[in-house]
C-alpha cells in the first residue's frame, strides 16, 4: 500500500524537481502489476502526471467524477466509486489469481453497497460499520 503526500512525486524527474526517478517509480509501482489508485481529486490528474511511467497502462484511478449532492460522507465516495467496496471490486477485476473465491467476494461487496443505499435512505446517516470502522492489523 502506497501513500502519496507530495503529488509532484508522480511526475517524471525531468518535468518536476520533486519527481521520482523512473527506477524508483518502477520499484514502488512495479513494471507490470495492476495499480488501484484512490485519488482525492479528478482522476485525469493522476494520468496526466504518470502517463510516461513504465506501468502507466496498469494504473486504474478512482476519484471525483462529478457525482455529488447532499448526502452522507460515505455515500459521496460510493457515488464516485471511490469507496472500499468498489476498490476491492477493482482489485478482483484485475487480479486473475484470486481464483474461485472472487465470485463470492464480489457478490458480498455488491450486497454491501445495496445495504448501504437502503440504510442511508432510511436513517439519514452511514451504517454503523462504516461510521465505527477501525483499522486493525492481522495478528
Amino acid at each position: 500500500m502506497i501513500n502519496v503526500v507530495d503529488l509532484m512525486k508522480l511526475q517524471p524527474q525531468s518535468e518536476h524537481p520533486h519527481g521520482l526517478s523512473d527506477k524508483d517509480f518502477d520499484t514502488l509501482f512495479t513494471k507490470d502489476k495492476p495499480i488501484i489508485f484512490a485519488h482525492h481529486g479528478y482522476p485525469m490528474l493522476i494520468h496526466r502526471l504518470t502517463y510516461r511511467r513504465t506501468n502507466h497502462k496498469n494504473i486504474h484511478v478512482r476519484g471525483f467524477k462529478e457525482e455529488g449532492t447532499t448526502s452522507t460522507p460515505f455515500d459521496m465516495v460510493v457515488m464516485n466509486d471511490l469507496d472500499r467496496f468498489h476498490l476491492v471490486a477493482d482489485v478482483i477485476d484485475r487480479v486473475p489469481s484470486l481464483g474461485p473465491r472472487a465470485a463470492y467476494a464480489k457478490q458480498a461487496l455488491r450486497d454491501k453497497l445495496i445495504e448501504h443505499k437502503q440504510y442511508i435512505a432510511e436513517h439519514g446517516e452511514d451504517m454503523p460499520e462504516i461510521r465505527n470502522w477501525k483499522w486493525s492489523n492481522p495478528k
Partner: peptide
C-alpha cells in the same frame, strides 16, 4: 505484490485501508 494499492488524500487513504482490510478478510 499481486496488486499495488495507491492513495492520495485523507479520505481516499481511509477507503484504501478499509479496502486492504476487506481484501485480507476475503483473500
Amino acid at each position: 505484490p499481486d496488486v499495488v494499492m495507491a492513495c492520495c488524500g485523507d479520505v481516499p487513504t481511509l477507503e484504501t485501508l478499509a479496502a486492504v482490510k476487506l481484501l485480507r478478510k476475503h483473500f
